[in-house]
Design a binder for these strands. Structure first.
Lengths: 334, 334
DNA sequence: TTGTAAGCGTTATCAC
DNA sequence: GTGATAACGCTTACAA
């Protein structure tokens, strides 16, 4: 079942069939209809390989993410896939984990599949500590568009769409301070671009309020609610006091809440807790956790829209920023 | 950069280069090494389209799921993708939603991409109420392997890997009854194959204990913790009493727990709660929710292993069943 | 062991 | 408006 079968049965040349297939206007309505009819009768489907061979594109973009089972990234994948498909593009998904070697290897693999663009979802793809480790991305961007969702890298062919994490955290800290909190513990999971921005927002808010940045209030912790809880228990046992906890991820906030329950702290009076990403997790607990909505749907939509503009030869800024929303629930009274 | 460039530079024919590429043993070591060397020098990557055109396969399988942001399916996708890749296959992801028309349309779309197999993840793909609506799957299975993860359809070319949901729910109900519970409320989300099995397990356990199946204790509810909570509140207000809640999904169990908090019921004494899937949600709450681990990782691994066997021409059972585990946490004392 | 050449199903460039 | 025909880059008989 190929273009020859259709052309034979319709009594036209393959060129004409191809024209019909591609919406070329230089076909008479009569011919077009006959061809379409035959295609329908024969249940003809064009062969994507043959098409790809000629055009060297398969209307497919590669999506990389470190872990599709993370709620935030799972949503990102969902929206990205939906938007790409709405624009006629398939997506090949690749979950890389967080090892640089694997990220590199999967990146190469997707390139070898001749994807039309790459989307790197999540802030885990830009190395902060060793800039040269990002070179493989920058080099690839010379050949095809690379879209960063919630990550930033300044190079030709790389387009970032990020949430203003700095501002989000600045606002949260600002409002906590305004409401009288004085010892805000800060828990974060990673040294990513996004992670550093969040932390800086927290620090800048303290400074703006004339408060010192106290290192003993800033702690890194695995993205695991059990570990977050244990960390807080041991910090409290060591004599550290705090009246609020800001976290870079909802899972840490859940851990903080478990700590509060464990130590019978009243919430939000004795301890305010703020999560990040406003995921399902923040709705599961009792009380529900106030959290920052990072607009992953908007982020994803803008990413795909930008990509389509790039494909169309349009001008796209190297960085698009959207604002986050603070969603007040029951662990704060701001 | 193609096979001709390599052949020219290595001083051999393209056939020989192709042989080296495909590990054909009929090449002298000397030639093979020279060719490999040249490939490396030139940074040659074979063109997948040209290859696919000849072989009519692209070592790619289509994965469909109704919603990749559901924690259970997100994990399934993660594991499936990982296993497929380990076996040299790419995956094209398609999130279909739950409308039949869309499922059908996306299915067609993936077929037109000439995927080598289809994996349908989750029980939402087999229509229970109208069997003929599954025909499009059965017909497709004549042309390529169709793998069902946690769904069952008996037809040639369709291979199911399922968790024994009936047994899991039977055991849970059995143990609740043994521990003295007498009014077990049952909440479920959907009429899927898996959903019906779970419900039947619950009913059979009641029967085995000589208890009546009371329809007023069985309720369908949207997969939403807020709705589950509201439903229980209104049921309780209407005078219904119950000392345990079994749910077909963790999110409903979270809703049940919120209901319990709301009504100040002690857990598990006054009310036992059991979730399903043992997802992150069941660990977020306080108390943590006892839940059924449905082994999605094993399910995914077996699915891909079976698929590889099918590709290799081996015999694979139409249905593989694995047992679930009950994970006791703090909402039961069984 | 190696080379030649046909074929895979499209799209694109010519003529007409 | 339509038809030949040459790419596109690979695999694989078949020949040598």
């Amino acid at each position: 079942m190929n273009i020859y079968d259709v052309s034979a049965k319709a009594g036209v040349s393959i060129a004409t069939v191809s024209r019909v297939l591609n919406g070329n206007p230089n076909v008479s309505d009569k011919t077009r209809n006959r061809v379409l009819e035959v295609m329908d009768e024969l249940g003809y489907t064009p062969n994507v390989f043959a098409r790809g061979l000629g055009l060297n594109t398969m209307k497919t973009v590669g999506i990389m993410c470190s872990d599709s089972s993370d709620p935030y990234l799972a949503h990102a994948i969902y929206y990205l896939e939906r938007e790409l498909r709405a624009n006629g593009y398939d997506s090949i998904l690749c979950c890389t984990g967080s090892e640089l070697v694997n990220k590199r290897q999967y990146f190469e693999l997707l390139l070898s599949k001749r994807v039309d663009a790459m989307i790197l979802a999540g802030s885990k793809f830009v190395e902060i500590d060793s800039a040269e480790d990002n070179n493989y991305i920058i080099e690839a961007a010379a050949d095809l568009p690379v879209m960063l969702v919630n990550g930033y890298l300044d190079a030709p062919g790389i387009y970032s769409t990020v949430c203003d994490d700095h501002d989000a955290m600045y606002q949260v800290a600002h409002r906590l301070l305004q409401s009288g909190r004085r010892q805000i513990l800060y828990l974060y999971t990673s040294h990513s671009y996004s992670g550093m921005n969040k932390l800086q927002g927290y620090k800048d808010a303290l400074t703006a309020h004339g408060m010192p940045v106290r290192q003993e209030l800033i702690h890194r912790c695995a993205k695991d609610l059990g570990e977050a809880k244990e960390l807080l228990l041991s910090l409290a046992d060591s004599g550290l006091t705090f009246d609020a906890v800001m976290t870079s991820d909802d899972s840490l906030a859940v851990g903080a809440l478990k700590f509060a329950h464990c130590r019978k702290k009243s919430i939000p009076e004795e301890l305010s807790i703020v999560g990040y990403n406003n995921s399902m997790l923040s709705y599961c607990t009792d009380p529900e956790i106030s959290s920052v909505d990072t607009k992953i749907e908007s982020l994803s939509i803008i990413t795909v829209q930008s990509l389509m503009k790039v494909f169309g030869g349009g001008q796209v800024p190297g960085k698009s920023v959207i604002k986050a929303d603070f969603v007040q629930k029951q662990t704060t009274d701001l």
